[in-house]
């Protein structure tokens, strides 16, 4: 909420300096510098102004919505924002968002680290480059395509797997499966895992490649096996890299909209079983409720968007801090 107030204190933009004649005189270094500095600072300020406008706009609309809410914003299990006394809460959305993202992380991180290690230390050199390239390309597949694929290819093929999970782990209650369409938080988690896999892989691979060669060679010379080298010199070096990569992946999983909206069967209920269709996420709820929402309903959705926004901000910020702590390594192996 204090974003808006913070932006008000931003310094006013300096007058943009774009005198063509000054730039023409090549000998004078200082005018050129001044123009360049002005340009780059100017665009920084433009960005700041846009962002401040959005943040102010969002906070304003969200505040409008919250003041009229008759339910509890944090605990109500309902989304009746268009009704005349509006009643809505984000409990189900928060649960769904967090749970599906955690499922995605639990699946994606080990696999991504495996692939990253495979590319950096295991694959034959000739294979490693094209594989890394393919993974890069997959990071660019649009989420609508993942959504289409998830809804028409993945979900129909998961019924068998889910019945199996039900027979093996059904007694826990978490993996109980009623035989409905497999459009549950678990399916969303699996799809998100596949979507964030390339990002986590890319970042951790970069970190693994930066692991000091000397350490590895020393370990090898002492007779360590390849796994021991990785466990003792590569993984400790890359731990913070893996964490920040996971955070970046988490950030993407939290905010994913269209892919979740095509795959999930949204209901405003928290179900004990991950395999039961139902639940919802912030972004999905905004996308599917937005069209029919009244003006007030839109404000309510924006309020939920603001919460998502803050969560994503926290996650991204944490990832950044972890990366920043290791800044001394950047540039070393460019």
């Amino acid at each position: 909420m204090d974003i808006a107030t913070q932006t008000e204190t931003a310094p006013p933009p300096p007058p943009p300096a774009t005198t063509e004649q000054q730039r023409a005189s090549r000998g004078a270094t200082r005018p050129g510098d001044r123009i360049f500095l002005g340009l780059s600072r100017g665009s920084g300020i433009v960005l700041l102004v846009i962002m401040a406008a959005i943040a102010a706009f969002l906070t304003y609309r969200a505040a409008l919505a919250l003041s009229d809410n008759t339910g509890n914003f944090l605990t109500t299990f309902e989304w009746d924002a268009n009704a005349i006394p509006p009643k809505f809460g984000i409990a189900v959305l928060a649960f769904g968002t967090v749970v599906s993202s955690i499922i995605a992380l639990v699946i994606a991180v080990p696999v991504a680290v495996g692939i990253a290690l495979f590319i950096s230390h295991y694959a034959p050199r000739k294979l490693a480059v094209p594989i890394a390239y393919v993974i890069d390309l997959l990071a660019a597949v649009p989420s609508i395509v993942y959504g289409l694929w998830g809804a028409l290819v993945v979900a129909p093929n998961l019924t068998g797997f889910y019945s199996w999970l039900d027979t093996v782990l059904g007694w826990t209650g978490i993996f109980e499966y009623q035989g409905g369409a497999p459009r549950s938080l678990m399916t969303v988690g699996i799809l998100l895992a596949i979507m964030i896999l390339p990002i986590i892989t890319n970042v951790s691979r970069e970190v693994f490649l930066q692991a000091p060669k000397m350490h590895e060679e020393a370990a090898l010379a002492l007779g360590a096996t390849r796994w021991e080298v990785i466990r003792m010199s590569v993984l400790p070096f890359g731990r913070s890299g893996i964490i920040s990569a996971s955070m970046l992946g988490l950030g993407r999983a939290l905010g994913e909209t269209i892919a979740v909206a095509t795959v999930l069967s949204p209901t405003f209920l928290i179900s004990a079983s991950l395999l039961d269709p139902g639940g919802g996420t912030f972004a999905q709820n905004i996308a599917s409720k937005f069209n029919e929402a009244s003006e007030y309903g839109r404000d309510a959705l924006i309020a939920s968007g603001l919460v998502l926004f803050l969560i994503t901000l926290l996650v991204n910020g944490a990832a950044r801090m972890i990366i920043a702590r290791r800044k001394e390594y950047s540039g070393a192996n460019a």
Binding site: I3, Q6, T7, A10, P11, R41, G44, I45, L47, L48, M51, A52, I54, A55, L58, G251, G255, T257, F282, A283, I286, A287, F290, I302, G305, L308, F309, T312, L313, N316, G317, R320
Partner: peptide
């Protein structure tokens, strides 16, 4: 301060749900 504010808001901006933009 300006650079810090810009860095902060670039981070904020990455978190904007596309529908909100």
């Amino acid at each position: 301060k300006l650079a810090k504010a810009v860095t902060f808001f670039v981070d904020v901006m990455t978190g904007i749900p596309s529908i909100v933009a």
